[in-house]
Structures are given as C-alpha cells and as structure tokens.
Design a protein around this nucleic acid. Structure first.
Lengths: 242, 242
DNA sequence: ACCACCCTTGGCACTCAGTGCTGTCGATCA
DNA sequence: TGATCGACAGCACTGAGTGCCAAGGGTGGT
C-alpha cells in the first residue's frame, strides 16, 4: 500500500489518490510495527506524517481504517465484476472469481499484507474490524447468489451458505500464505480451497460425472501404495502424452 | 434477559448473578429502544439504573457488551458440550447440536431477542460487535472439527468450511425467526437449515476423495483436454498426498 | 493583474468511551 | 470492638472522533 501510485492528477476512473493518504498509511504502519497499535495515538501518526490531526479523520473515518486502506476499492471492484456477469455462466464459479479478486489485492503487496496480518493477529480490535470487512465481501457474494438462486427451493439459504463457504475457503488459504510470510504462490492454495467447496456444492457436476459426459475420457485405476512417479507416468500414457 | 434470575446467593454452578447487572441491562435497553443506541450515553444508563458510572464498566467491559449479556455463558456451554462429546459420534452432527444451543438461548427470551435484533440491524457498531461474537462461536466449532479431521487430507480446510456453513445456516434460520417477531417455532427452521448443510457435507461427494479414505484403490476420471498439472494435482488429492 | 470562489488544510473546543486511583460503606471474622 | 475485604461511588485523566471556523492556495472569469 505504500507503493507509489499517482500523486498528481489521476487518469483512471478511481477518484484520484492524494499523497497525504499514503503518507498517513506509511507513518501509521511504521509506528504500529515499532511500538504497537494501541500504544500509538492519532497524534503520534499525524506528528510523524507532518500533517494536522483533523486531516487524518478526513481520509480515514477511524483509527482502524488506516490498517485496511484498500478494501473499499476492492469491494467496489468485486461489485463491478459481479454486475458484469452474464446470466449464462456458472454462479458459483463467478463468486470464486470474485474471491480471487481479494487474493490478488493481498498478493500485490506481500510485505504490506504480511505486516498487516501480524497486526490483526494480535490486536483484538483489528481482528473485529477485519471481520466487518470480510462480512461485507460475504454479503456482496451472497446477494449475487441470492439473485441467481431466487427461483430455487431454499435459494437464499443456499446462497448464504455458499457465500460463507467460499469466503472461508479463500481466507483459509490466504492465511496459510500469510503465515508463510507471503512466500510462494498464493494462487495455487486458493484455487485448491475454492475447488474444494465448489465441488461440494455442485454435486450434479462432480468431476467424475462431468468428465463422463464427455467422449474423450480417460480412466486410471491404481493402488495407493503405487509410487507417485509411476502414477504420473501411467496417467500421461493414458492421456496420450509424455 | 431482563427475566428475573436469582438476585441473592446462587446455588447453581454459575458464579452468581448480581442484581445490578440485570438492572443495568434493563435500563440500557429501555433507553436504547426509546432514543436509540448512539443517542444514549453511559451516564444516561447509570443515572436511570441509579448506580455509579464506574459500576457499569465493572460488569460490562464496553458499551456494546450490555447488548449481548448472555453470550459469554452460551459460549462456555458450547465448549462444555463439545468437550463432552465422544470419539464415536458424528462430528458434524455434534457441531449442529452445538449450534442449536445458541438457538435455544435466543428462543428462551423471544421478546428480548427480537428487540436486540432490531438494534443490531440498524446500528453498524452493534452489527460489527455481533460479528465478533459469532466469530468466536465459529472458531469454537472449527477447532472441534479440526481435531476430528486432523488425519484427513484438507482436514483443517474442511473443518473451517463446515463450521462456517453451519453457523451461516443457523443464523439464516435464526434471523428469519427474528424477522417474524419471534413468533412460531424457531427449531423447525434451524433444523431444516442445518440438515441442508449436513447433507451436503456428510455424504462423501468426491469419489476419488472417498477412495483415499476407505479403499486401497483410487479411480481417476478425467478429460483428455485437462491440463496435465491439474490431472497430477487431482491424482495426488485422490491418493491423499500433496 | 485583480478579484471572487472553492477546495483543502490546520487548529480549537467539545463529547463521550474507557481506565486508574482513592475514599467510603457494610459485612464478616477474630 | 477492631481489622479486613469486597463492592461501590466519585474524580481525574487519556484518547478517539466531531463540529466549526479561519487561513492558505489554486482556478476561472473579467
């Protein structure tokens, strides 16, 4: 988040990002990390940033907000993505895509994300605030699914449950990546987790059943004790590759 | 919650419930309902209750806590229930029972529960606080499931997802009952919602994943067009590795 | 160049939540 | 009767958040 965006006139659709906002975030995190969140007052932050105290609350409605400076934008992106969805495509898949949007935001600034994770992990107030942020994502997904499932029996229930499952799976993988220090590929873990829940909630299209409908199908039967390299070799052979 | 419990020496296991606590809750809700949560100060509450300002914070760590005076006890009950569970029984069913514990607490005082629902619905700060309460329930369920699923592949992921799905289903039905003014049977709706998620997660949906649990043989069905990395990933999942 | 205008910023004063400390009252026990 | 302990009230203080107003610095119009 401390990464330099445009400080002058912005050309994109986003309503321009003042330099003072970035300066406040940078000053806040510097102090939060070196002396703790609760031990840092707003006066400390504005003194380090060299701005007036009143300006802080112009850019952040509360002290907690400075820790999550980009979620508002991400939420808007998610809403836009879902609104751009068409009636034909799979609703659960779209919701998973929307969740990946959040992951991308975290992955764009690994260092910042890990620092924030360290903070939210140990400060109860920040944890609670994060819950309210996550809740807004979840409600956005749920509202989208509710509209798609409105005709279905138990449609709203299904929408709420799938939304929460998707969010939970996403956060499960995201936190694993954050615990690892932001090293490695975050996408793979999230894809796996999202697949896990998507598979559970689209049973009519379980992988085996779906594949069986296609004509180009390969069936592999093996024992658990078989060495992995040998399984891979047989699968490749069955697929006509390798 | 304003229902009269023992004001003198308590005989049950709970550490005795002072009369002043109930008086504060009653005074707080009276003012919250007639002039709004944010328009009511702690001084207003203690003035109406006829006690000192400092005493409020002796019984409630924050202004929000007075709105949820019994959740701490319910959380303790839930923990006790799960700890009393035996290894033989179905983990998901036990978690659903634990969720029903929360419903019972709401159903014990329908009037109070509906009043509180009206408050939390329109006060953002209370909604956020409620999220943190719900989160603690969810974490309790998830930790229980994690211990049960620890041997399983993706066990912690499964535990987190099921816990959130159960909590979401429970809250879905609970809120429907609250919106209806606390009339009718709350249990039926919650049972139906919990059944809905339990059915999705108890029958093993993925044939490959089930094989990894039960048999020595794994069957993988895939399309020729599937990317190789994905095939390998699914095979590893089926074999319980990765 | 000058002025009117508007937007941003800073500073001040205020409310209110929450905490630490002290004194007091009443009950219990030696 | 006197000492002790726990609950309570009152007070003073910190810090978050808000409303208000004045100063500064661009910008457009004349």
């Amino acid at each position: 988040m401390t990464a330099a965006r445009d400080t002058s006139s912005e050309t994109s659709a986003t309503p321009a990002k003042p330099a003072m906002r970035d300066a406040l975030v940078a000053a806040a995190f510097q102090l939060f990390l070196e002396r703790g969140y609760e031990q840092t007052t707003i006066d400390d932050i504005v003194a380090l940033a060299g701005v007036g105290r009143r300006s802080f609350f112009r850019y952040f409605p509360s002290k907690e907000d400075v820790v999550f400076p980009d979620h508002e934008q991400c939420l808007a992106d998610m809403t836009a993505l879902l609104e751009a969805s068409e009636d034909g495509d799979d609703a659960v898949a779209r919701v998973c895509d929307a969740a990946r949007l959040v992951l991308r935001m975290y992955a764009e600034n690994p260092v910042f994300s890990v620092q924030r994770y360290q903070l939210t992990k140990k400060v109860p107030g920040l944890r609670t605030y994060e819950l309210s942020v996550v809740w807004r994502y979840e409600r956005t997904l749920a509202e989208y699914l509710r509209a798609r499932f409105s005709a279905r029996r138990d449609g709203t229930l299904r929408a709420d449950v799938i939304a929460s499952a998707v969010v939970t799976a996403h956060n499960h993988a995201l936190r694993a990546w954050l615990r690892a220090g932001g090293e490695g590929d975050a996408t793979a873990g999230v894809d796996h987790a999202l697949d896990y829940v998507a598979r559970a909630w689209t049973p009519e299209q379980s992988p085996a059943a779906e594949a069986a409908e296609e004509d180009e199908v390969v069936i592999v039967i093996t024992k658990r004790s078989t060495p992995m390299w040998r399984v891979v070799r047989d699968v490749e052979a069955g697929l006509g590759r390798g």
